[in-house]
Simulated assay, not measured.
Amino acid sequence: MGRAIDVKERQTNIADYILANGFVTVDELIEKFNISRMTVHRDLDYLERAQLIQKVRNGASAQPSNIFESDFAYRERVNIHQKEEICKLATTFLHDGMSIFLDDSTTVIPLIPHLRKFKSLTVVTSCLPAIIEITQIPEVNLIVLGGIYKHKYRSSYGYFSVSAINKIHADMTILSPHSYKTGSIFEYEQDVISAKRAMLENSEKSMVLMDNSKFKQTTLYLLAKISEFDHVIIDSDVPENVIKDLENQSKDLQIAKA
């Protein structure tokens, strides 16, 4: 039993180290944790099956690719200051009495503490971290969507989730995609797209939040055209050429200042 605990602790420490550094080599892990090459590969295999990291040649990465989405824990740590500034600006488009769809993205999570300043809001979401945090805000009426829970995204998807969304009509959808390219936003999985599309189709207005990491990667599936959104909010670290593209494509582009 003691040995199993040691292995689990080591694997947790390795995962944290990879998530903190983005990419590490096998040799680096051997030296850092004083373990054999075979043990490193065995631990990386386990962490990849758990969808915490991605094994690559001679190492491991927490960075997403066009077919691999990193765990919620990694994404939550990326650009946290920029996400907070984006969410602070996003709250200026909200008012008392609104009903809001919130998606499963880590970009939207920093919005939740700002909801305390409103006297009455209704939030509809399937994102577990959001649900837990919102339960601490008595002014917010919370509607929890069901479905099949996916640990990697800390959220629920599928027929039951989409069916519930289709029975609700909200004032605003607030979401964030995995990536943006040339006037469109993209996601990894069809289930994620189905839920977010249903939110967009069942709300009066919509807002997309994107920190600068969204413009540095590519993703497989089209979610929506940026022109579909009433408001687009980005941070000030987004490259100038991308800002110009967004100005041409968006109805209303807002830049959150650091």
Results as ranks from 00 to 15, higher is better:
residue 19 L to V: 11
residue 214 K to D: 01
residue 20 A to L: 13
residue 46 Y to C: 04
residue 142 L to T: 11
residue 62 A to N: 11
residue 69 E to C: 09
residue 199 M to Y: 13
residue 18 I to W: 06
residue 35 I to D: 03
residue 39 T to Y: 05
residue 224 A to C: 03
residue 215 F to K: 03
residue 93 F to R: 12
residue 126 S to T: 05
residue 78 V to C: 04
residue 120 S to G: 03
residue 89 L to R: 12
residue 119 K to D: 13
residue 237 D to L: 11
residue 171 D to V: 04
residue 208 V to M: 05
residue 231 H to V: 15
residue 58 N to I: 04
residue 3 R to G: 00
residue 65 S to M: 06
residue 136 Q to H: 15
residue 86 I to M: 06
residue 209 L to R: 06
residue 54 Q to L: 15
residue 79 N to C: 14
residue 11 Q to M: 13
residue 4 A to M: 12
residue 138 P to F: 08
residue 106 T to C: 06
residue 255 I to G: 07
residue 1 M to N: 07
residue 71 D to N: 15
residue 226 I to Q: 00
residue 207 M to E: 05
residue 72 F to Q: 00
residue 251 K to D: 02
residue 61 S to F: 09
residue 167 K to N: 15
residue 73 A to I: 13
residue 229 F to L: 02
residue 121 L to N: 06
residue 37 R to K: 15
residue 173 T to K: 00
residue 141 N to H: 14
residue 157 Y to R: 02
residue 258 A to V: 08
residue 253 L to M: 04
residue 137 I to G: 01
residue 6 D to A: 14
residue 168 I to L: 12
residue 34 N to I: 06
residue 217 Q to K: 15
residue 100 I to F: 08
residue 81 H to S: 13
residue 246 L to M: 03
residue 24 V to E: 03
residue 112 I to R: 01
residue 88 K to F: 12
residue 191 D to F: 10
residue 147 G to Q: 08
residue 107 T to C: 03
residue 120 S to I: 00
residue 215 F to G: 00
residue 127 C to W: 09
residue 110 P to S: 07
residue 101 F to H: 00
residue 142 L to Y: 10
residue 24 V to K: 04
residue 146 G to N: 07
residue 166 N to Y: 03
residue 27 D to E: 14
residue 176 S to M: 05
residue 123 V to G: 06
residue 256 A to M: 09
residue 182 T to R: 13
residue 216 K to Q: 14
residue 128 L to Q: 13
residue 60 A to R: 11
residue 204 E to T: 13
residue 78 V to Y: 03
residue 202 N to F: 09
residue 68 F to S: 04
residue 2 G to D: 11
residue 85 E to N: 09
residue 173 T to D: 01
residue 39 T to F: 03
residue 211 D to Q: 04
residue 234 I to K: 01
residue 115 L to S: 01
residue 136 Q to V: 00
residue 125 T to N: 03
residue 176 S to V: 05
residue 104 D to E: 12
residue 145 L to S: 02
residue 131 I to M: 08
residue 174 I to L: 10
residue 11 Q to V: 05
residue 106 T to H: 08
residue 79 N to D: 12
residue 160 F to K: 08
residue 237 D to T: 15
residue 190 Q to R: 10
residue 41 H to I: 11
residue 28 E to V: 07
residue 29 L to E: 03
residue 73 A to P: 00
residue 244 K to Y: 09
residue 142 L to A: 05
residue 84 E to R: 14
residue 111 L to G: 04
residue 157 Y to H: 11
residue 180 Y to E: 05
residue 84 E to S: 13
residue 47 L to G: 01
residue 104 D to A: 12
residue 22 G to L: 09
residue 182 T to V: 10
residue 16 D to M: 11
residue 247 E to C: 01
residue 135 T to I: 07
residue 44 L to I: 11
residue 199 M to L: 06
residue 235 D to R: 06
residue 230 D to E: 14
residue 200 L to I: 10
residue 172 M to L: 15
residue 55 K to V: 11
residue 54 Q to W: 07
residue 172 M to Q: 05
residue 2 G to T: 08
residue 161 S to C: 15
residue 7 V to W: 06
residue 32 K to G: 01
residue 3 R to M: 14
residue 137 I to P: 00
residue 102 L to Q: 01
